[in-house]
């Protein structure tokens, strides 16, 4: 359902942006994702749940389960990397937006797009190193994961997390995911978490709020 464009509202936002710039938001608490690359069976129930929740047609994919495989027959391996928006501490999309439609929440660090201000220019799509913003040609808007903000506000977890049949995808305060104090089934008793896996953009770019349980072949040597 495409929004009616309110040109005056967009203009006001652009002027506000010129005057005040982009304030860096230091959230009171930053939520982040955890995904277990090894135990994930790659079923993509999370992707379909996300599509249904957000009323998306084919094309835009807020959540993307990427399949990685390698080796030579018969010594092969395979694992999955599951990513949507990483709700970065320093989101690259935010300053790329010419209308100030992208904003970061103070309470939980969720990065969201105000669809009434989005003009579908797709600059954020180009700026994001993780491919999170998704262009929806039907509405001529860029859309992306907002961690099911309506669910969070109601005290519930996002649809993708509650869809996970293997219980390998979860959210928690990112600090707790990193220091191992978060209570989550995504991390097994012998698992370690890392901030980056092979093939993924350098986390230093935007400080993404996501950690992984990596596959042995997916580890990044530091």
């Amino acid at each position: 359902m495409a929004n009616q464009i309110d040109k005056a509202k967009i203009k006001a936002s652009v002027e506000r942006l010129r005057e005040y710039g982009y304030p860096k938001v230091e959230p009171e608490m930053q939520l982040g994702f955890i995904h277990n690359n090894v135990d994930c069976i790659g079923c993509r129930a999370c992707e379909i749940a996300c599509k249904d929740k957000n009323g998306l047609g084919p094309g835009p994919r807020f959540r993307r389960v990427q399949y990685v495989e390698g080796g030579t027959y018969p010594e092969v391996f395979a694992f999955k990397i599951n990513m949507s928006c990483n709700h970065c501490a320093d989101p690259a999309c935010l300053p790329a937006c010419p209308t100030g439609a992208i904003w970061k929440r103070k309470d939980n660090g969720v990065v969201d797009i105000d669809s009434t201000l989005c003009i579908g220019c797709r600059k954020c799509e180009a700026a994001c190193p993780f491919g999170a913003p998704q262009f929806d040609p039907e509405d001529n808007l860029v859309k992306k994961c907002n961690m099911c903000i309506d669910q969070l506000e109601a005290g519930r977890k996002p649809y993708c997390v509650e869809a996970c049949m293997m219980r390998v995808l979860d959210i928690a305060p990112i600090d707790q995911l990193r220091d191992g104090t978060a209570e989550t089934k995504a991390i097994g008793p012998n698992d370690e978490v890392v901030d980056q896996v092979r093939g993924m953009a350098d986390p230093d770019l935007t400080n993404p709020s996501i950690v992984f349980v990596p596959h042995s072949k997916g580890k990044v040597k530091s």
């Binding site: 669809s115 859309k143 309506d150």
Partner: peptide
Amino acid sequence: PARAFAYEPYYTDD
């Protein structure tokens, strides 16, 4: 009135 975060009209589960 539209709220900023999503595509309107949008019904929350509740």
